[in-house]
Design a protein around this nucleic acid. Sequence first.
RNA 1: GGGUCUAUCGCCAAGUUGGUAAGGCACGUGAUUGCAAAUCACCCAUCCCCAGUUCGAGUCUGGGUAGGCCCUCCA
Length: 467
Amino acid sequence: MRLFDSKTKTKREFTPQNPPRVTLYVCGPTVYDDAHLGHAKSALVFDLLARVLRASGYALTYAKNITDIDDKIINKALQTGESIGSLTTRYTEAYHRDMDALGVARPDIEPRATESIGAMLEMIDALIRSKHAYATPEGDVYFDTQSDPAYLSLSGRKQEQSETQSRVESSAHKKQSADFALWKTVKEGGNSFDSPYGAGRPGWHLECSAMIQKHLTCKGDTFGVDIHGGGADLLFPHHENEAAQTRCALGHELANFWVHNGFVTIDGEKMSKSLGNSFFLKDALNHYQGEVLRYYLLSVHYRSDFNFSEEDLLASKRRLDKLYRLKKRLFGLVTEQVKTPFQTELLEALGDDLNVSVAYALIDAMIQAANEGLDQNPKDKTLRSQILSNLAFIQTLLGFGAQNPFEYFQFGIDEATKMRIDALIEARNDAKKAKDFARSDALRDEIAALGIALMDTPQGTFWERKE
RNA sequence: GGGUCUAUCGCCAAGUUGGUAAGGCACGUGAUUGCAAAUCACCCAUCCCCAGUUCGAGUCUGGGUAGGCCCUCCA
């Protein structure tokens, strides 16, 4: 497959260093709050990448970390009085719940920062011994960015700019303002870990380097991982710093391919709490089906900015509807699985740097051809088995179409309403049998008032929720 | 201020080596339907502006204009 690498800013053929093994590491959430749409986008992009890699025949090991020790977590715990362990467990579970709703498969490894302290301390030790890091009198340890000639080679920035324009107050003991903390000493006890530099906690950037080394790197590897992913905002300074640490501590580059997904904005504005437009996934899931959100969030190329709007989401839903309509036509049929050209083309499209636009277009064309074929030969066994195989392939590769099609179209309707609808439909069918079309249409209007659309078919009358 | 990315039909959005604009939503027409829905068929843009390179540019070069993101924790 071909992938765009943020470091070289080019799309090139992806080749793993130890084929067929492929390692993928993605920066996961800091669990101090509920996941928002940006977390969803990132998780979905790399879920798709993982699926495509597996479908392409690679033996993938996918790791996504959970940052469960951090300033924001500590502050929130102090504010609410909840223990850090309870807080991070609670939000980790919430994260899992939200991602499950989007159909995001769990990574193979989900390392926690607090479980990787040993690996991080080893890396600090190596950096200090090789003079790439220094301890301050307070017990902080900083990475010496000046000591790494390749520093900033990932993000392509220039040192002067980073320094002169820096808006951060730099520590009096830092050699350069760009130097970043590997270990932060902690005065008040409670939330700290023991270390040779005193009680404290690790700097944020360190955990990824350490986890990759611990879980994914093989002896003699040229790169820590084949692919390192995360949000575009992480390119600098987070990934730049990770790369520097690994380069200086271990003598190899951290990743062969750097993959960054674009940002999610809401109605043209960046999500932020101060703007009051932060969009929690759990809230979105109350209004829209997880699968619709999945289809919508994946519909734009992963490197593009994604502007969330309800109008676009509904347009996406109508597109996904067509897949379920086709599934409905063949509901209950079981056939043998066959290979089709469509499947090859779909995998090829996604194998080209995850070109979802082409993939979606292929799916639409397949659906259209399938409907046309079924219109002409509804009982064609070969056709049916091709269509069902294609749908199954889409489900595996993209995670679309796993639901019961009838339930898909009846999302969010409670049981009482369903029973009422069924009763009204029955009454309407009686009226239809009696050719009392006036009454039949009146009943349809009554049902429509409930937000329900009816469809008469040779198999009977079905209903769907209207938007 | 520095870095970086983007600007294609009403809306969303593809378009690796330059050769004459995918797909979806919405809209319109027709087939089908008691009516409708669904489905099918048809219809629907010359690619932000200016100047270049070229036989030929959305696709390359230069200059504008507009916007996103990063430079502070951040997916």
